[in-house]
Design a protein around this nucleic acid. Structure first.
Length: 553
RNA sequence: GCGCCUGUAGCUCAGUCGGAUAGAGCACUCGCCUUCUAAGCGAGUUGUCGCAGGUUCGAUUCCUGCCAGGCGCGCCA
């Protein structure tokens, strides 16, 4: 359709009806008017072109309308084109076109909605990346849900996606973790800036059970033994919890590995060759201020130790050298200050930071229960963990709720709402629509009603509710492409809610199955077919969110 | 002080690559189960889109300034 408008524009210019020098857009945006009286699709292209063409917008629209109506490729699909208001072009689809939509859904099946907008783009999607020093908490949980959904959405848009979890397995935090575990095992006070909480005692006890000899090792070896044993246990625990949350990673990337096989040296050389590395005060710096950072960053400290920034730099270079075009970072709000320096790393490495780096910032999550906020006090023992959240509300509700808000908005999860089974709990609203359709289709099958691609009968689907439903189904591929482009999986959830609502209204107004002794007609078959297409699209939406689409509830 | 995010209905929030009358759920009132799942549907009520300018045929959306709230600014990780 968008292509047809471009063709009409080109013809209008070549026929001199529009000025020859007019600069034409690469693509024309079609929108779905909120008001049904404005047709199925609308474009304001004539309004936008009126000024450069020095013409009345309605006159421009009228010219385009004439060419559109003459376009052979879309001739059968359009029922009418109207000019409205100051110069909007409103397009109404023909019924045959609507039948084609249903047929497309049924034939594409679980691939309906997939596209090629990001075909050939290799994306590294890094998310969660928790320290292996404790359980995953609420902040991680938001990223686990959103990151996983984003991965699914990007893949559906045709991108080649690698999901990566960066393990911060070196540095002071690890040393403190080891020291805390050893202190707990000895029954002495944990260092003040160390890790506290019941889980530390539990891990220490596990280590003691398996390796009681760790306590009698020389101090240095003993700390290392506790650190590495705790690390293994925590990492395994995080992996177990994430798998249970249906969040899959392709690569678990160890920070330590950046310092093996001279890789870090290689990175340093590469950055130096670009001219952005210098020494001062005995330390090795990266001149990130060349690219908009507010101060230069230390990579190697004057005592010879690697700063965390060294790892950041090497890790980025590793990603690029492994062949990824776009590196997506999902960061917590308390790390937003890193965006500039990450982009500076890319620039220092000779890359284009606006393309190669895509940083998403997630705002805080709070959780309420019984009208009170459950306090999270990280590392102090009263953290709300991913696992606890799932125990309270289940994987589906937790995932869905975390995904349905844009990540740059702080959000509050209300446990009581998530446990309720009403309209105020959107995940049930959407799942219920799916289960309801499945029930109708089961009944249809029992009655021997045929439905499927040969039973579409678009000419019978004349009701306003049916038109509305088909229109919404047709939108799905654009919604997926938009969600991928903008990195906003919440759009899928909002779409699913809208589609579910439209179906419920259709269901209330349009009887699908014959009543009583009523004879079976093509209308019943057509509506059952429409139902099955709708179930397909709801299921595909939920699949992109990693939420189940139950057939019975 | 500098930087990022947020400010839309009584509440929780969508919408915003500039478009036609700004939406949904909750809450409140009233209707709909003797046939497809009432975890549903329908009707009614609710707005200075934080404030002030600017750009535009058109601004809740873009720009500037201000106000309010959250977060961040280490040779920590």
């Amino acid at each position: 359709m968008s292509g047809a408008i471009l063709r009409a524009l080109a013809l209008a210019v070549s026929s001199q009806e529009l000025p020859g020098g007019l600069l034409l857009p690469d693509q024309v945006v079609l929108e779905r008017p909120k008001n049904r009286g404005h047709g199925d699709y609308a474009t304001s292209i004539a309004l936008a072109l009126a000024k450069p063409a020095e013409m009345n917008p309605r006159a421009v629209a009228e010219i385009l309308r004439t060419y559109l109506l003459a376009d052979q490729e879309i001739k059968g699909a359009i029922s009418s084109i109207e000019i409205a208001g100051p110069g909007f072009i409103n397009i109404t689809l023909a019924r045959a076109g609507q039948g084609a939509i249903i047929a497309a859904i049924l034939s594409a099946g679980d691939r309906y909605g997939h596209g090629n907008a990001l075909q050939g783009v290799r994306i590294n999607l890094e998310f969660v990346s928790a320290n292996p020093t404790g359980p995953l908490h609420l902040g991680h949980t938001r990223w686990a849900a959103v990151g996983d959904a984003l991965g699914r959405v990007l893949s559906a848009a045709g991108a080649t996606v690698t999901r990566e979890f960066y393990i911060n397995d070196r540095g002071n935090q690890m040393e403190l973790f080891g020291a805390s575990l050893r202190a707990a095992a000895q029954g002495v006070a944990v260092p003040e800036d160390g890790y506290h909480g019941q889980y530390i005692n539990e891990i220490a006890a596990q280590i003691m059970q398996a390796h009681p000899e760790y306590l009698s090792l020389p101090d240095g070896e003993s700390f290392d033994a506790f650190r590495d044993a705790g690390y293994s246990l925590q990492l395994a625990d995080q992996q177990r919890v994430l798998a249970g949350f249906r969040t899959h990673f392709d690569i678990w990337f160890s920070e330590r590995s950046l310092y093996e096989n001279n890789f870090f040296q290689h990175c340093l050389d590469r950055l130096r060759s670009q001219g952005h590395v210098y020494e001062e005060g005995g330390a090795m710096w990266l001149r990130t201020t060349d690219f908009g950072d507010d101060k230069d960053r230390v990579m190697v400290k004057s005592d010879g130790a690697f700063a965390y920034f060294a790892s950041d730099s090497a890790y980025y270079i590793s990603k690029r050298e492994r062949g990824f075009d776009i590196c997506i970072y999902m960061l917590g709000a308390d790390h937003h200050g890193y965006v500039n320096r990450l982009k500076a790393i890319a620039a220092c490495a000779g890359d284009d930071p606006t393309y190669n780096i895509d940083a998403l910032i997630g705002q805080l999550v709070k959780i309420m229960e019984n009208g009170e906020e459950l306090k999270l006090s990280k590392r102090a023992g009263t953290i709300i963990t991913l696992e606890e959240l799932v125990e309270k509300v289940g994987v589906d509700a937790a995932r869905y709720t975390l995904i349905r808000y844009p990540v740059d908005t702080p959000m509050v999860m209300d446990v009581d709402v998530l446990r309720s089974r009403t309209n105020e709990n959107p995940v049930y609203y959407v799942q219920y629509a799916h289960a309801r359709i499945c029930a109708v289709l089961r009944n249809a099958s029992d009655l021997g009603i045929l439905f499927g691609a040969d039973q579409i009968h678009p000419e019978l689907l004349q009701d306003e509710r049916e038109r509305e439903l088909i229109g919404a189904l047709a939108e799905f591929p654009r919604v997926v492409a938009g969600a991928a482009e903008l990195r906003e999986p919440h759009r899928i959830a909002r779409y699913a809610e809208e589609l579910a609502g439209i179906y419920h209204r259709f269901y209330a107004d349009c009887r699908v199955l014959p009543m009583g002794d009523e004879p079976m007609t093509d209308l019943h078959r057509a509506r059952a077919t429409l139902c099955s297409a709708t179930a397909r699209v709801i299921a595909n939406s939920l699949e992109l969110l990693g939420v189940s689409a139950p057939e019975k509830m």
